[in-house]
Design a protein around this nucleic acid. Structure first.
Length: 311
DNA sequence: TCACGTCAAGCAGAT
DNA sequence: ATCTGCTTGACGTGA
């Protein structure tokens, strides 16, 4: 098991998701921004390794407007050596990487042009991971998409559209259950059709399920992952106790996490903690899990030259 | 320096 | 009709 957090580090004082307005687009500004973002990503990954946080979601804003028609810049070539260096660091330290395109990426849209734009966005995400030389265990997680008034038809459209996605991109795709439209069961059904692994979101499942227990849910999604996909990924967040339902808590509830880990102790998986305070909660979780002798399977970084050890 | 209107993109549910 | 959340506020103009 590796533990990680998404996109942003609030401790080290740089951002890898800096962007700018489309109106102010220029090649110079793009180059400068990507330079900054890659430098910051490097610093975040170094921080993560020092703190045994070996699962990280790379922001979709790493290369702003990369999939927009305005971008004619060959950022892959220009930043090639930087991407390779980061990728080498990731592999040397056994860091697991994911990406999560935003809500505008809709494979199953009724509107074919939205699908085409979404495909460009997915190609961009895959190119980031390709540029780093990462294998197919580096995943791009997507939701099924909209319902458009007919769920069955929208799921069939999802399957047909996935068949049109190039293998270089599709090999990285994983489909995640969401909190309103598509349950874990739906994702499993789609996985059977498309062979895409299912990324299990614990919180989404709690608010949108067909009555499966946590154990049943794990046995369902777990077998959708093949060896080439790496260890299954799980998204975990604590719901905010007061206020709007569906929003995320500011900090992690360690007791709740402890119960979750206890219930799932027979499975090995990489755990993404989607908590507002990001690396702070992830650190608490790593320390807690390390102290707890029952959990023997967390991967922690070595601080010397050898890449990692399993305790 | 700071306030604040606005920002590439879509959907669904609440108000 | 308009607003809000989604994984997340921050860009950048105008004063």
């Amino acid at each position: 098991m590796r533990i990680g957090y998404p996109c942003i580090n609030r401790t080290i004082g740089c951002r890898s998701d800096r962007t700018f307005r489309l109106k102010s687009y220029s090649e110079e500004l793009l180059m400068e921004t990507v330079q900054n973002n890659l430098d910051c990503l490097w610093k975040i990954l170094e921080f993560n390794v020092r703190h045994n946080l070996l699962f990280f979601r790379i922001t979709s804003d790493l290369v702003p407007f990369a999939s927009h028609p305005i971008c004619r810049f060959n950022w892959q070539a220009y930043f090639n050596s930087k991407f390779r260096r980061i990728g080498t660091f990731i592999k040397a330290n056994s860091i697991r990487i994911s990406m999560h395109p935003d809500q505008f990426t809709l494979i199953n849209s009724i509107d074919n042009s939205i699908f085409e734009r979404s495909l460009s966005e997915l190609v961009y995400h895959a190119e980031v991971l390709d540029s780093m030389g990462l294998d197919s265990s580096a995943k791009i997680q997507i939701h099924v998409g909209g319902v458009y008034g007919d769920k069955k038809e929208s799921m069939e459209r999802f399957v047909k559209r996935v068949e049109r996605i190039p293998q270089a991109v599709a090999r990285r795709l994983v489909v995640e259950n969401d909190d309103r439209n598509y349950t874990l069961r739906d994702c499993i059904d789609l996985s059977n059709e498309t062979e895409l692994p299912v990324l299990f979101d614990v919180f989404h499942h709690e608010v949108n399920n067909l009555g499966e227990t946590l154990g049943e849910a794990f046995s369902m999604f777990y077998r959708t992952w093949k060896p080439r996909d790496g260890i299954p990924m799980v998204d975990y967040s604590s719901p905010r106790l007061e206020g709007r339902k569906g929003s995320h808590a500011e900090s992690i509830d360690m007791k709740r996490l402890g119960r979750f880990l206890e219930e799932t102790r027979n499975y090995d998986f990489d755990l993404m903690l989607e908590i507002k305070d990001k690396e702070k909660s992830a650190l608490k979780a790593v320390e807690s899990v390390r102290r707890d002798g029952r959990f023997q399977r967390i991967i922690i970084a070595r601080q010397d030259s050898t890449p990692f050890k399993v305790i």
